[in-house]
Structure formats: C-alpha cells, structure tokens
Design a protein around this nucleic acid. Sequence first.
DNA 1: AACAAATCTGTAATCATTATAAATCAATTA
DNA 2: TAATTGATTTATAATGATTACAGATTTGTT
Lengths: 143, 143
Amino acid sequence: MKSSLEELEKELKIRNINISYQRLKVLECLTLNHCHPTVDQIFTALHKDIPTLSKTTVYNTLRILVDAGMVRVITIEEHETRYDIDMENHGHFKCESCGMIYDFSIDIDLLTCDELSNFEVNDQNVYFKGICPGCLSNINQNK
Amino acid sequence: MKSSLEELEKELKIRNINISYQRLKVLECLTLNHCHPTVDQIFTALHKDIPTLSKTTVYNTLRILVDAGMVRVITIEEHETRYDIDMENHGHFKCESCGMIYDFSIDIDLLTCDELSNFEVNDQNVYFKGICPGCLSNINQNK
DNA sequence: AACAAATCTGTAATCATTATAAATCAATTA
DNA sequence: TAATTGATTTATAATGATTACAGATTTGTT
C-alpha cells in the first residue's frame, strides 16, 4: 500500500497532475484514513494543519483525482458523497445504525454477466445497507 | 406484473397507505414506464393530466412509497436520484453516452458473502457504468 | 527581481430537496 | 344540505451541498 508523501508525489506525476501541498494533503488524508470520508470530513481534518484551506480547494482536488482515476466516488446514500482511494474492485456496506462503512470483497463471477456481454463496463459499484455486527449485539443486549 | 389502477389501489391498501388520485398516478407512472424516472420526469409526465400537480406532492408521494417498501431509490450518479418500482434484486447499468439505464440480473452468489455473514443485510444495490451496445456501434460506425 | 502560469481562496450563484403553512378535498355526522 | 374533522395537496420560503467566478497567492523560470 502506498502511503508516504514521496510515493503519492510519484502517483501524481505519473498522471500529469501538478503537485501542490493541498493536493498532497488531500491524497494523504484519503490514504491514511480508509474511512471513505466526505468533503466535510476531509476539510475538517486538514483545516487543523492548513488553516487557510478552502473547501473549494478540497472539491477541486477531489474532482481532479477522480477524473485521473486515482479516487472513486461513493454514493451509497442520496446527499452523502464519499471518496475512496482504493480503486480495487470491492463492495461497500453501510450500517444504518452507526453510519460506519465497511469494505467487503466481491466475487469475480459478478463481472461475467451474460446479459452485459455486449456492453462496455467501465465502472462497477456494489452498495449494501443494513446493521453491522457491533450494532446488532448492542441491540440484543438492550432487549 | 401489476398494472391496472385497481391493483395499484390494492397494493396501497395492503400497506395502509391512503389512496389519492395523485398517489395512484405517481404509482401508475412508475409501473408503466420502467425507465427509472427522476422526480422531474415524473412531474413532467403527470403535469399534462394533472395541471394543478405540485412537485412537492411528487416528492412526498415517493417518500411514502419508498418508506413502505414499494419503490426503491437509485443513486448511480451524484445529483441524479431515480426511482424504480421493481423491488426484485437486479443490477442497473447506466450508459455514459446516451444516459439510458438498463436492468440486468445478478447472481445469488453475490448475496452469500462470507465476510458479511455476521451482518444483517437489508438493501443491496449494484450499479455499473459504461457504454451500451447501441452507442458502441454508433461510435464504431463514425470511425 | 520580474514575469507568467497555475493554484488557491472567499464569496456569490445554482439547484435539488425539505419545511412550513394555508388551501383544498374527502368522508362523516347532524 | 351544511358543518366538521382530518388528511392531502399546493405554493412559497428555507436549506444545504456543490459549482462558478474573480481576485489573491504561490510556484517556477528567466
């Protein structure tokens, strides 16, 4: 897993994205916390280190990273856009009780769908919702 | 497939939703056009028959239907909420060229995911994006 | 140091959705 | 039929995330 600032710089250079402190920090934020943050969460996290940071910069940077294929957009819920630096194919589960988002692996069989054999598939998203084990046991304890 | 207004009335009664002309028409619109319409598309389609219709009513009705489990929300794209009356488990493919949304069947294997064995899964959405066969052939012809 | 190009910032504008309150409608009773 | 009650619909205003934009700042180059 790539994590150091130097490696992130390389990743940007490969994709012809100019380097800036803000861009590196947004990338670092996504890399360190694989928590699928929202724009607000990224902004709040970085604002401590970069008091002058503008939310517009966070939006702009994320658009650049998404367009370059380094980051994917997650829209499990209406009005809750999140960002994920893990481009490997995987599913997202959102707990409707605590709001936490979990990654899970998905079967390659899903990809080989006869019906779509004549389609060019560029992007795949699998979103589940429900209750996570932690919240399930809390609910049971309070009974 | 249920389609007549009478059958839609029954469906509403079963779920303890009071019947109104607007509610029936929204339901009918979703039933006749399995095109996963947006709020605007529903509003525009019904406005011809119901000139007094308010967009707020469309929003309110859809919320009631979704809460009752008769309709599901589709959020393939940010800022493009669509509604689907087909509650059977299936995937959605959106063509990035023509914007059309296609249904496709998904494998039951997807559901039996070991990692999520301790999770309570209440909702599953599979969203693909790419280019549909029609747009692919257009692109090839124009080469 | 000066210049040009890119990036960042802050504010204003946009647009879908939600909140709210008054108007309308439907059903019931007198 | 008229009055009453409750639910639904409507129109408008408010909200909030995102985008547009223009000026300020930074960076790299000569």
